[in-house]
């Protein structure tokens, strides 16, 4: 009988303790970020989709069209197309296609690049109406960023 009452009492007490905790948090300030209105800065190492880095000297890309990133990619989402340029030894990048629909953001391409020509973008707000909107030409994107 005593045990029975004790159980009831301790059980009820645990319920009141719980209520005490939740009401304490009720009066504390909120911790959420009101996302579209407030935006948190991304960390420097954030791995978004890849992007070509700009060569500070030429203002163009640094890509040497070696195709290492293409080989490193586990999902075959990178296609690098280069043209022979008259007079120059190296090939020049003409198109850098990233099929973002297949990309798993693993970062192996960036790691494999010998020329530091690609980097992660900090762009995570990606939304689009069609699948084709995610087949990026990074070269074009680099040129557009210029303006």
């Amino acid at each position: 009988m005593i045990g029975y009452l004790k159980e009831i009492f301790s059980g009820t007490w645990s319920l009141f303790v719980g209520l005490g905790i939740t009401i304490k948090y009720f009066f504390k300030p909120v911790v959420t970020v009101q996302y579209p209105r407030e935006v948190l800065p991304m960390t420097p190492r954030f791995r978004g989709h890849i992007e070509l880095t700009r060569d500070p000297e030429t203002g163009g890309d640094k890509c040497i069209v070696c195709g290492m990133c293409q080989k490193a990619c586990p999902s075959n989402c990178i296609t690098v197309v280069g043209d022979k340029v008259e007079g120059a030894k190296k090939k020049a990048l003409s198109r850098y296609i990233l099929d973002f629909t297949k990309c798993s953001l693993c970062g192996l391409c960036v790691e494999s690049c010998p020329a530091d020509a690609i980097t992660f973008s900090k762009d995570y707000n990606l939304a689009g109406p069609s699948r084709e909107a995610y087949i990026f030409d990074l070269k074009k994107r680099l040129e557009e960023r210029k303006g």
């Binding site: 009401i23 948090y25 009720f26 009066f27 300030p29 909120v30 959420t32 009101q34």
Partner: peptide, 13 residues
């Protein structure tokens, strides 16, 4: 609203 504030978020806004 109450659930939101108990859970430290805002609720409908």
């Amino acid at each position: 609203k109450e659930a939101g504030h108990i859970q430290r978020r805002i609720g409908p806004k």
